[in-house]
Write a protein that binds this DNA or RNA. Structure first.
Lengths: 141, 141
DNA sequence: GTAATTGCAAATACTTTGCCACGTA
DNA sequence: TACGTGGCAAAGTATTTGCAATTAC
């Protein structure tokens, strides 16, 4: 029985990435946080703060994104957000435009059918989608 | 019979915005382009290029967004995108991760039901959503 | 006349890269 | 040992703001 970390590391190793402390702690941080996080947030997080430079985190995120281990999200803010891609899992998000709180929506995503239609009609390769709901949360309202 | 421009200008006037040449040409540019556009793109567009400063366009976009005349979109790029909000109309987008081409999807959006569920369950106010599909277009593949 | 709007230039924010030192395989 | 990685610092890109001059109403 492999831990989630071991599973991801294994995938990374298979892609030719080296197992460094920075990589390991970055992945752990992403695993422990099911919500999308920014570069700044990650670089200053508990596990990574003293450990490595922000540029290192940046380049790790870049590599992991290229290899499909994580995904880069838009989410409307100036900064980019990153989240671990769990095979078979998909999340949509609910975002408060007041306080910026981001939460994952657990309800089944209603978009897959349309996604298939688009794939067939347009011939786009590697199709995926991003769905976000924006609004004012009860506390901000 | 009002032109689309006149309709939007009327809404702007009602909100207390002044009818300036820059506002008019910005709105015309947005009306003529049904796709989301960036600040840089707008400021250097045919109608606005010689007419006004980029800061002016920036502030116009800001005001129009605050007043709900246009919407600011994420769309995954570093730059923010803006698009005119047509009452009763809603667009989702298909974006090529290769060449960056953005096209509006005409198919009916399958998300409204989920949006209503979220509104009821969470109590979020002013809920709206953004849905984008990403992939590689046939020409880039 | 008065308050909203604008231009210009400077300041931010966040990202991205160069270069050389370092560590993993 | 060799090549992927990392640190530090500088450069790049897009946004955001201050302030005085201008313009719509």
């Amino acid at each position: 029985m492999e831990t989630p970390l071991q599973q991801v590391i294994t995938r990374c190793r298979a892609l030719g990435l080296r197992r460094t402390k920075a990589l390991e702690e970055l992945l752990l941080t992403l695993i422990e946080n099911p919500r999308p996080m920014t570069l700044a947030e990650l670089a200053s997080s508990e596990r990574l703060a003293g450990l490595c430079d922000k540029a290192t985190v940046y380049r790790l995120l870049q590599r992991l994104t290229e290899h499909g281990i994580i995904r880069r999200l838009g989410l409307h803010e100036r900064a980019a957000y990153f989240t671990l891609l769990q095979p078979g899992k998909h999340s949509d998000y609910l975002i408060c435009t007041g306080c910026g709180k981001i939460e994952a929506i657990q309800a089944p995503c209603p978009v897959h059918k349309l996604e298939n239609e688009i794939r067939e009609k347009t011939g786009y390769q590697g199709l995926y989608h991003e769905l976000e709901f924006f609004g004012t949360c009860p506390r901000c309202a």
